[in-house]
Computed example of a mutant assay.
Amino acid sequence: MPQITVDHSYGIEDFPDAFVRELHETTVEIAGAKPESCKTLFRCAILSVFGYEEPDDDEVQRHAIVHVTIGLLAGRSEETKAALTEAVLELLRKHVTPVPGARLHASAEVRELDASYRKFES
């Protein structure tokens, strides 16, 4: 914990190392997470579709999508979760650049991990 996932479409230039570092630092600062517990997984979608447009190469280049999900153990206030979400959006504005000519659609959310959440390290 926290479990951070960054889902994104093609059409986004590489995520800079500074984005991940600041994302972890922000999560530690706002949500009280431990630095060594921050884990981020990036997943690039094979296909993304915007609105009713047909998914072809031109459309992929015109719209870039990124969504950050942060899973935290229960116990954070709604205010803390909202502050973290807003901070993540600011980091996306600062660090994420779509390919030239593409419009960036960015979103973020903070979720509580289910009580069944378990982990192990080996």
Rank of each mutant, 00 (worst) to 15 (best):
I46L: 11
G75T: 07
R76V: 14
P55C: 10
P55E: 05
T69V: 14
V60D: 06
K34S: 11
I70D: 02
H67T: 06
E53N: 15
I46Q: 11
H63Y: 11
D56S: 09
T80L: 08
T69K: 00
R62P: 06
L72N: 02
G71I: 03
T69L: 04
T80K: 08
L73Y: 11
R76Q: 08
S77K: 07
V60Q: 10
D58M: 11
E54A: 11
E59G: 08
A33W: 00
Q61P: 01
L47M: 14
L47K: 09
L41I: 14
I30M: 03
C38M: 01
D56Y: 04
E78F: 03
V68K: 03
P35M: 06
I65T: 05
R62I: 08
C44L: 12
S77W: 10
H63S: 14
G71W: 01
C44Y: 03
S37V: 01
E79F: 07
V68H: 01
L47C: 10
H63F: 11
S48N: 06
A45I: 01
A74E: 15
A64C: 05
G51T: 08
E78W: 00
Y52I: 11
V49K: 13
E54S: 12
E59T: 15
Y52Q: 14
V68D: 00
L41A: 12
I30S: 03
R76G: 02
L73N: 10
Q61V: 08
H67Q: 06
G71C: 04
G32L: 09
R76C: 07
C44T: 15
R62E: 10
F42V: 03
F42D: 03
I30N: 01
V49F: 03
E78T: 11
K39V: 02
D56K: 07
T40S: 14
Q61G: 13
F50G: 08
V60K: 08
T80S: 09
E53R: 11
H67N: 08
R76A: 08
I65K: 00
A31Y: 00
V66H: 01
A33Q: 03
G51W: 05
E53G: 10
T69M: 02
S77P: 04
S77N: 07
P35I: 10
S37N: 11
A33K: 00
E78D: 15
R76K: 15
E53A: 13
L47I: 07
A31Q: 01
V49N: 07
G32T: 02
Q61T: 14
G71F: 02
I46D: 07
A45F: 12
F50V: 08
T40A: 10
V49L: 14
G71N: 04
L41Y: 13
G71V: 02
S37P: 00
K39E: 09
I70P: 01
V66M: 04
T69W: 00
S37L: 06
T40M: 09
A31K: 01
G51E: 13
P55L: 04
A45M: 12
V60H: 04
R43S: 14
D58T: 15
A33Y: 00
T69D: 06
A45T: 07
H67L: 12
C44W: 04
T40P: 00
K39T: 04
E78H: 07
S77Y: 10
G51A: 15
E53V: 12
L47S: 13
I46E: 14
A45H: 12
A31P: 05
P35V: 10
A74H: 13
A64S: 12
H67Y: 13
G51F: 03
L72G: 01
P35L: 05
G32E: 07
